[in-house]
């Protein structure tokens, strides 16, 4: 049976290097390009037909935009709207990477921990920067929840510090693990299908169909969770409790 982790392997397609840094193009990078091209193509085309009664494509783009604006409004309030371009880029990038990964033979970019890690660390860094820029040194008060008795403060600060530092970690691992696990299970079931042949192979195959539908939902949900948590973290930095 084939190794279910085999689809996650990368191979340099076009070797490139920049100042000694290896930036070879590989499958994951190509899929990133495809995702970015699709998002840009979709939104630029949708935006070019500014009609009061929207076309189908315009409706789709407007639903996406309205959905993202809804998330921002709920978690950050109106002042979070200036993060709207960033949040929507993040959401659409992750969503399209997740969905493209479901095409057989393609590559799930978000199943690379380093990719999700860059986003998570970037988002967390942004929230800290925003917090310090808006509130100065008072931003450190997020380490002490309101209503904490004085004698608990020495205990609370390390706990809160750990919980805050765990944010980028959980954010990146959640997305990476979800995307990886789904594909691994699919790979295992497909392996069983082939190994079982016609006699028993239909059973794991039926499971792959159901699981594929589930994976489609997970692709959306994980993009949504990543986005909403990003909003929550930045919103925390804006509002301080």
């Amino acid at each position: 049976m084939e190794d279910p982790l085999h689809p996650f392997e990368l191979h340099a397609l076009i070797p490139l290097s920049l100042f000694g840094l290896d930036i070879s193009l590989n499958k994951a990078v190509v899929m990133m390009f495809v995702a970015v091209a699709l998002v840009i193509g979709l939104l630029v085309r949708a935006g070019s037909s500014r009609q009061l009664v929207p076309t189908r494509l315009q409706s789709l783009a407007e639903i996406l935009v309205e959905f993202i604006r809804g998330i921002i409004r709920e978690t950050m309030g109106q002042e979070g709207m200036r993060f709207f371009p960033l949040i929507s880029s993040l959401f659409l990038f992750i969503l399209f990477c997740n969905l493209l990964g479901l095409i057989p033979g393609s590559y799930t970019v978000t199943s690379q921990l380093v990719v999700t890690g860059v986003f998570a660390v970037g988002v967390y860094t942004l929230s800290v920067v925003v917090g310090f820029r808006l509130h100065g040194i008072r931003f450190l008060s997020i380490l002490v929840p309101p209503g904490t008795p004085g004698w608990l403060i020495p205990l609370m600060i390390p706990i809160e510090l750990i919980s805050h530092l765990a944010r980028p970690l959980s954010l990146s691992v959640r997305l990476f693990a979800n995307m990886t696990a789904g594909h691994v299970i699919l790979g295992v079931l497909f392996g069983l299908t082939i190994a079982g042949g016609l006699v028993i192979g239909w059973l794991p195959f039926a499971f792959t169909v159901a699981l594929y539908a589930l994976e489609l939902g997970i692709a959306f949900i994980q993009a949504y969770i990543f986005t909403i948590l990003t909003c929550v973290y930045i919103g925390d930095a804006i509002h301080l409790h």
Binding site: I23, N26, V36, A61, V65, L92
Partner: peptide, 27 residues
């Protein structure tokens, strides 16, 4: 190194295009 580099580049392009051209007319 290549994943991080290309992620930053492609996300940067995506962000820039959406911010400058795609999102304003939709909004």
């Amino acid at each position: 190194s290549s994943l991080i580099f290309w992620e930053v580049v492609s996300f940067g392009i995506l962000f820039w295009v959406l911010y400058k051209f795609a999102l304003p007319p939709i909004v």
